[in-house]
Computed example of a mutant assay.
Amino acid sequence: MKHPYRIREIAAQSGLSPATVDRVLHRRGGVRASTVREVEQAIADLDRQQSQLRLGGRTFMVDVVVQAPARFSAGVRAALEAELPGLRPAVIRSRFHFLDSAGAGDLVAVLDKVGRAKSHGVILKAPDVPDTVASVARLARLGVPVVTLVTDLPTSARAAYVGIDNRAAGATAAYLLQEWLAERAGDVLVVRGHGSFRGEDEREMGFRAEMRARAAGRRLLEVVDEEDRADAVHIGTREVLGGNPAVRAVYSMYAGAGGNAAVIDAFARAGRRYDVFVAHDLDGENTALLRQRRLSAVLHHDLRQDLRRACHVIMQARGALPGPVRSNPSAIQVITPYNTPPAEF
Score class of each variant (00 low, 15 high):
residue 271 G to L: 10
residue 176 L to Q: 13
residue 133 V to L: 09
residue 341 P to W: 00
residue 89 P to Y: 05
residue 170 G to Y: 09
residue 33 A to N: 06
residue 47 D to S: 14
residue 305 Q to G: 15
residue 155 T to N: 10
residue 43 I to R: 11
residue 151 T to W: 02
residue 200 E to I: 06
residue 137 A to V: 04
residue 269 R to K: 14
residue 1 M to V: 11
residue 89 P to F: 04
residue 46 L to D: 04
residue 159 A to S: 01
residue 259 G to W: 01
residue 272 R to D: 05
residue 14 S to P: 10
residue 292 Q to S: 12
residue 53 L to N: 11
residue 232 A to C: 12
residue 304 R to I: 03
residue 222 E to F: 12
residue 282 L to D: 07
residue 188 V to H: 13
residue 148 T to S: 07
residue 134 A to M: 03
residue 276 V to T: 15
residue 332 I to Q: 02
residue 31 V to T: 14
residue 61 M to V: 10
residue 153 L to I: 05
residue 258 G to N: 12
residue 83 E to T: 11
residue 185 A to L: 09
residue 23 R to Q: 06
residue 185 A to S: 14
residue 14 S to F: 07
residue 298 V to P: 10
residue 269 R to N: 11
residue 259 G to V: 03
residue 8 R to I: 13
residue 317 A to M: 00
residue 152 D to A: 02
residue 230 A to M: 09
residue 211 M to L: 07
residue 11 A to K: 01
residue 144 V to R: 02
residue 180 W to S: 15
residue 86 G to N: 12
residue 287 T to P: 03
residue 179 E to A: 15
residue 174 A to R: 04
residue 89 P to E: 03
residue 131 D to R: 11
residue 79 A to M: 08
residue 302 D to Q: 10
residue 179 E to Q: 14
residue 23 R to S: 06
residue 141 R to W: 00
residue 273 R to Y: 14
residue 130 P to F: 09
residue 232 A to T: 12
residue 227 E to S: 13
residue 248 R to A: 11
residue 103 G to K: 11
residue 337 P to D: 06
residue 338 Y to F: 12
residue 305 Q to E: 15
residue 112 D to F: 04
residue 56 G to T: 08
residue 179 E to N: 11
residue 165 D to I: 06
residue 212 R to W: 10
residue 76 V to A: 07
residue 95 R to V: 02
residue 163 G to P: 06
residue 157 A to Q: 14
residue 62 V to L: 14
residue 76 V to T: 06
residue 19 A to Y: 08
residue 231 D to K: 13
residue 60 F to W: 05
residue 225 D to F: 01
residue 141 R to M: 00
residue 120 H to W: 08
residue 164 I to C: 08
residue 325 V to W: 02
residue 42 A to F: 03
residue 191 V to I: 06
residue 313 V to N: 04
residue 236 G to M: 09
residue 317 A to S: 13
residue 142 L to S: 10
residue 298 V to L: 11
residue 223 V to N: 08
residue 162 V to T: 00
residue 312 H to G: 07
residue 175 Y to D: 11
residue 57 G to Y: 08
residue 275 D to K: 08
residue 163 G to W: 00
residue 137 A to H: 13
residue 132 T to K: 04
residue 144 V to Q: 04
residue 6 R to L: 13
residue 167 R to E: 15
residue 132 T to R: 01
residue 129 V to Y: 05
residue 324 P to E: 14
residue 15 G to I: 10
residue 194 H to A: 11
residue 129 V to G: 04
residue 92 I to C: 05
residue 13 Q to R: 13
residue 2 K to C: 11
residue 14 S to N: 08
residue 208 R to T: 04
residue 69 P to N: 13
residue 142 L to I: 09
residue 281 D to W: 12
residue 8 R to F: 12
residue 274 Y to T: 01
residue 68 A to I: 02
residue 120 H to P: 01
residue 162 V to Q: 01
residue 192 R to F: 01
residue 26 H to M: 02
residue 3 H to C: 14
residue 57 G to T: 06
residue 266 A to N: 05
residue 203 R to H: 10
residue 96 F to H: 13
residue 213 A to D: 14
residue 70 A to F: 11
residue 155 T to P: 07
residue 90 A to R: 00
residue 274 Y to V: 05
residue 227 E to V: 15
residue 17 S to T: 03
residue 295 L to H: 07
